[in-house]
Structure formats: C-alpha cells, structure tokens
Amino acid sequence: MSGEQKIAIRVRDLEVSYDDNRVLQNINFDVHEGEILVILGESGCGKSTLLRHMLMLRSPQGGSVHYGDIDLCQASENELDEIRRDFGVLFQSGALFKSLTLGDNVAMPAVEFTNLSKDTIEELVHLKLEMVGLGGMQELMPSQLSGGMQKRGGLARAMVLDPKVLFFDEPSAGLDPVTSASLDHLIITLNETLGITMVVVTHELESIHAIAHHAIMLGKNHPGILAEGTPNELQNSDIPRVRAFFNRERYDENHGVLSGN
C-alpha cells in the first residue's frame, strides 16, 4: 500500500552519537502519509533517541530529516516551531502539566495558537476527550488520573490542533493488556478516520502486530537499521536476532538463539 503514497518524513543517513558512543548510523527510511510506522527494537537500541531526533529535540551529528521540502536539521528555530504545529507527540508518561486540570492541559495549544473563543475551545476540548474516552473528566487534575488515563489525556492534547503526524513514545509501556489493547484500537481508529500519519516507538509484540503497517527494527550494539518490512515479514526474517525478538527467544551475540529454559 505504500507504493504510490506521498512521503511525509524522509530520514537520510542519520547519525547520532553521545560523546564518543555511536548510537545511530546509516539510518535511512521514509514515513508515508497516512501510514502507521513502528520503530522497534530491544531496550537501549536507540528507538527513543531516533524519535527525539525526528522531532529535533536534539540535533544529530549527521544526515537529514526532511518534512516536506524542509530539512529539519537545517531549519531555524522559527521554522521548527512552524513545523511542529503539524506534529503531535505523546510522551511516555503523557507529560501532562501537573498544575493544570486535564481540560486546561488539552486546551493549552488551542489557547496559544488559535484565535478561537473560549466557548469553542471548551467544545473542542470536550470532543477530543470524548475521542480518547475521557469525556466529562476535564475538571480532574492529572494526579487524579490513572497511568492509562494520563496517556489518553496526553494523546488528546497532542491531537487538539489536528496534527498531520502523531508521534508516540512507548504508548503501551506500563499499561495493563486491556488498556494497552484499547489504546492500540484508538490509534488505529484515529489513523483510519482522520488519516493521521503515525510514528510509534514500541517493543510490545502485540501492539506491533496490531497497529503497524510498516516497521523498522533497530539493533542493539549495532547502530543501523537491522531489518525493515511488515510485522509478518520481520517475524519470518532470515536474521536470527530479528526472529528472536519476534518469537520472544533469548539471544546472545556469541551463541545465537538460546533455548527457552
């Protein structure tokens, strides 16, 4: 399905190091419009680092990240601010501002960046919360919400200005299977009905199978992309490390796949 689709984000030769430690290298991939791209890999492989660089929260040591015609790595602060209006990000913890009510959290981008009236914003907040299943809870403080609800709240805030691209950092981390599944369902519904392009960082196998149109896998101790394809292609990959990940097996650099017990 990705054949004729337009490319939303193009990453080329991205290179990232922390001090002398090369974390990412030769990273090349495209995010197509309207697709759900999953970035996966073992803990510590640089998934979240890649996401942070796609958002230009940190500048890479080399390479480019194009959104449309603009290279984010070369863009000025003002251009970046402009581009980030098209982006929505759900951080791992939801990152709701603890001093504001849920409703004020969600309203914040709309208050800052649009000239809608207070009443319209209130309705906007209401309907976004309704979309994520938190209808009627706008008066609650983040501390009164469970972890899963905080994430949904963070998602409502990320979506309030109708972003073209939504980024998710470990959306199902720390959630129970039921909540996690309903969040996956929400991601799919939003993608299908609103056509939002999505970039999801995760290592949850169930989520990957449920939501990914396309996936790239980063390798631990290997700063490049290990494998790329649909979840099914990856599961049947020739690379032992990739297969081990998808079949939940132990793996060791020297001995390959280790038997279960």
């Binding site: 906007l124 309907l127 109708d162």
Partner: peptide, 14 residues
C-alpha cells in the same frame, strides 16, 4: 472540516 468545525457544531448543539 477539522476539529474546530466539529467544535462549532458541538457548541451549537450545547
């Protein structure tokens, strides 16, 4: 129509 449009209908409805 985007979310702001939806909000307009919501507001009229309310």
């Amino acid at each position: 129509i985007d979310s702001a449009g939806l909000a307009v209908f919501h507001r009229i409805h309310s």
